[in-house]
Computed example of a mutant assay.
Amino acid sequence: MNKILLFIVVGLTIVSCKNETKTTEKNIEGVKKDIAYASFGMEINDADALTSERMMEQYKGLEAGDTVLTKMSAKIVEVCSKKGCWMTLDMDGENKVMVKFKDYGFFMPLDTKGDVVVNGKAFVTETPVDELRHYAEDAGKSKEEIDAITEPKLEFRFEADGVLLKTE
């Protein structure tokens, strides 16, 4: 009986000490490369963001006073040089969108450049002359350029509650 018990213990020890290595291959072809972003305002992600061209199609269907909740990606053209309290985005090479930040809850760095994803409310508005002049002053325009603003302008606007700035 002791010999059988000894045989079972030795057998189990040999089996449990067996060093078996398994290798697995992973297919990494379809893995999406993560893009690094600096985040401002509300926490958002870049999923389902409209391209600037698709967003411009949405804007063209809006009238003054209409709003659309959306997320879009675009390239920064200009940022307020005094506080970073607004920025303009290039939509299609012709049109730009003025972006302000909800409740002035956050600002962009003054030297901001590159691509962004903005989340919030898109709308069309008529901007009065005094406001247009104020923005021109903030942008560092010359006195002559500011004085040349004499008529209100129908503008594409965006109130962002969150912004992702693509980092290199």
Results as ranks from 00 to 15, higher is better:
Gly162Lys: 02
Lys33Glu: 15
Val79Ser: 02
Ser52Trp: 02
Asn2Leu: 12
Thr51His: 03
Thr125Tyr: 14
Lys143Leu: 08
Lys3Ile: 10
Ile146Asn: 09
His134Ser: 08
Val116Tyr: 04
Gly162Ile: 01
Thr125Ser: 14
Lys153Ala: 04
Trp86Val: 07
Asp161Tyr: 05
Met108Phe: 02
Ile35Leu: 13
Met108Tyr: 01
Leu154Gly: 13
Ala36Thr: 13
Thr51Ser: 15
Phe101Cys: 02
Asn27Gln: 14
Gly30Leu: 14
Tyr59Ile: 03
Glu159Cys: 00
Met55Arg: 02
Phe7Gln: 07
Val117Arg: 00
Leu12Lys: 05
Gly162Trp: 01
Ile76Lys: 05
Met87Lys: 01
Leu154Ala: 15
Phe101Ser: 03
Ile4Met: 03
Asp147His: 06
Leu62Ser: 06
Phe158Asp: 02
Leu164His: 06
Lys33Gln: 14
Lys71Tyr: 05
Lys60Tyr: 01
Val31Ile: 15
Lys96His: 08
Phe158Glu: 07
Met1Cys: 02
Ser16Pro: 00
Glu144Ala: 15
Phe40Ala: 06
Val117Cys: 00
Ala36Met: 10
Asp48Pro: 01
Lys32Pro: 10
Ala74Pro: 13
Ile28Gly: 13
Asn95Phe: 06
Gly41Gln: 04
Met98His: 10
Ser39Gln: 15
Thr88Arg: 04
Ile14Gly: 03
Met1Ala: 05
Leu69Arg: 12
Asp90Ser: 11
Glu126Gly: 01
Val118Gly: 00
Ala47Ile: 10
Asn19Arg: 12
Phe123Glu: 05
Leu164Arg: 03
Lys26Glu: 14
Ser39Met: 14
Asp161Phe: 06
Gly114Phe: 03
Ala148Asp: 13
Ser52Val: 02
Met56Gly: 01
Met72Ala: 12
Glu145Cys: 05
Ile4His: 03
Thr127Val: 15
Glu53Tyr: 10
Glu20Pro: 00
Tyr37Lys: 01
Ser52Pro: 04
Val129Asp: 12
Asp92Pro: 03
Glu168Tyr: 06
Met1His: 04
Val77Met: 10
Thr150Arg: 08
Asp66Trp: 14
Ser73His: 11
Lys83Ile: 08
Glu144Arg: 15
Thr70Tyr: 11
Asp161Ala: 00
Ile76Gln: 09
Gly120Gln: 03
Asp138Lys: 04
Tyr104Ala: 09
Gly114Glu: 02
Asp34Tyr: 12
Glu53Ser: 11
Leu69Lys: 14
Lys26Asn: 14
Phe106Thr: 06
Glu25Ala: 12
Thr67Trp: 03
Met72Ser: 09
Ala122Tyr: 07
Ala36Cys: 04
Lys71Ala: 05
Arg157Asn: 12
Gly140Leu: 10
Ala36Gln: 13
Gly114Leu: 02
Glu53Val: 11
Met55Gly: 00
Thr24Val: 14
Glu168Phe: 06
Tyr59Arg: 02
Ala148Trp: 09
Glu137Lys: 15
Val99Ala: 10
Lys32Leu: 11
Ile149His: 09
Lys102His: 09
Tyr59Met: 07
Thr24Ile: 14
Phe7Ser: 12
Tyr37Ala: 03
Leu62Arg: 05
Val77Phe: 13
Ile149Gly: 08
Val124Asp: 04
Ile35Cys: 07
Thr150His: 06
Thr167Tyr: 01
Gln58Leu: 04
Met98Pro: 00
Met55Ala: 07
Glu94Cys: 00
Val99Cys: 10
Phe156Gly: 00
Cys80His: 08
Lys153Asn: 09
Ser73Glu: 14
Lys83Phe: 05
Ala36Arg: 12
Cys17Arg: 08
Arg54Trp: 03
